[in-house]
Design a protein around this nucleic acid. Structure first.
Lengths: 230, 230
DNA sequence: CGCACTCTTCACCAAATCTTCACGCCCCGG
DNA sequence: CCGGGGCGTGAAGATTTGGTGAAGAGTGCG
């Protein structure tokens, strides 16, 4: 009884992939597979699955980093699979954006039930959510990492993108300089204010209708910045 | 650092209740407790918690039934706690509407992480709802540092915001000039009265419906100021 | 090796905010 | 009726914070 939607399994052990894919096959219409972190991220970006099962211990990259990276632009449900029972790992992954953490060996039926629980939650809340956002004539797609105005694509550097992403995800909220700095420059020295001022300026030049009178990125003088309400 | 929202613990073992309530206390503003299923259902109905931790093996009713009943009219996140490791139970509860299933013995830190994961999901959708206050048509959100009337955002300077925040946190109480001065101007000389008079005036102009006859920031002549009761 | 792109930093100007002052109002007691 | 304390208001200068353009450093690629 294959239902609707797409799932993605990221795992380097063929046996596990097979078992998980089989379990997901009962629930999803399409089940994609990736055997490395990079492949997984690419597939997640292009196919936009509704749910991702991520096995830790991939050969090419750290599972925690993979989870963070995907979560940065995807709202897909992420279920982490791991042989590690340590609290520390579980907490780190869950706080990195994972929605559930299942330890191996696991029961296929339990995994299916947890998948159903995640889907129920995700669907109850997102009636019809695409990742595309439109505001003040600007089109932003967090999943494909594209920005455009009037169909004309706008090129953003990685830092500019990270900044815009942070803004969009907190649209309507006032973000302090510190908060933004922590999000965009995870580990860095230098003067936060200075960075922000410079990048906010370039970002405004690229995305604002009138950079001198910003409509999207609003200054909360003395506090921080606020992105317009969606 | 107690955050926002309400949680409910339904469990008949005092020791577990204590541990769970303590863990939730770090995350929620209010943590309610119930020791029977019936009491739990009643509290869930009246207090409308954001998250419910439900222990199985309650004396009066079957956990599965309790979960179903609550889920029938509540969209709160439900985390089930149980000593049973059987797949069958887990699957049954998850399909009955539980969002997560944690087996005892459990780590407090892991439970907190799972709670955070659930909240993240729930809140990702209902943006900026959790700390919003509404009074006399004025909307104040202490968490996102936003103020609005009739949907129109009101811009406040840092000092004005500090003043309003102090008022809101002590709504209904009369604050002396000294108290307010200590809160808003942590290290400063100058004449308290003078500062307050000036800033109260500008704040009233910005947030009051009729600045000449204030409804929110009331003057207690000879004593200080009092913010209207929420 | 040179090129293109991005990141980082700086110095200067503009704008918002803070602080202070002077004045007028209202209420109350003398 | 008059005077004074407490309070509200508006404005001006001082100060802090933000915006801007550009130049040098670092990086990856052909």
């Amino acid at each position: 009884m294959a239902g609707h939607g797409t799932a993605l399994v990221i795992d380097d052990e063929p046996q596990i992939v097979k078992a998980v894919a089989r379990a997901l096959g009962d629930i999803f219409e399409v089940v994609l597979r990736a055997s490395t972190a990079q492949e997984g991220i690419d597939q997640a970006a292009s196919a936009r699955p509704d749910l991702i099962v991520l096995d830790l211990g991939l050969p090419d990259r750290d599972g925690l980093a993979v989870c963070r990276e995907i979560r940065a632009w995807s709202s897909a449900a992420i279920i982490v699979l791991s042989a590690r029972h340590s609290d520390h790992d579980k907490i780190a992954l869950l706080d990195a954006g994972a929605d559930d953490y299942v330890t191996k060996p696991f029961s296929t039926a339990e995994l299916q039930a947890r998948v159903r629980a995640q889907l129920r939650r995700a669907r109850a809340i997102l009636p019809s959510e695409g990742s595309a956002i439109e505001i003040d004539g600007l089109e932003i797609d967090l999943a494909t990492r594209t920005v455009a105005r009037a169909g004309e694509p706008i090129h953003l550097t990685p830092t500019e993108w990270a900044l815009l992403r942070t803004f969009v995800r907190n649209a309507g909220k006032t973000l302090t300089h510190q908060q933004m700095f922590a999000e965009v420059w995870p580990n860095s020295g230098g003067d936060p204010q200075q960075y922000l001022r410079a990048y906010v300026a370039t970002l405004r030049r690229k995305i604002e209708r009138d950079p001198l009178r910003p409509n999207l990125i609003l200054t909360e003088s003395g506090a921080g910045y606020r992105f317009a309400t969606l």
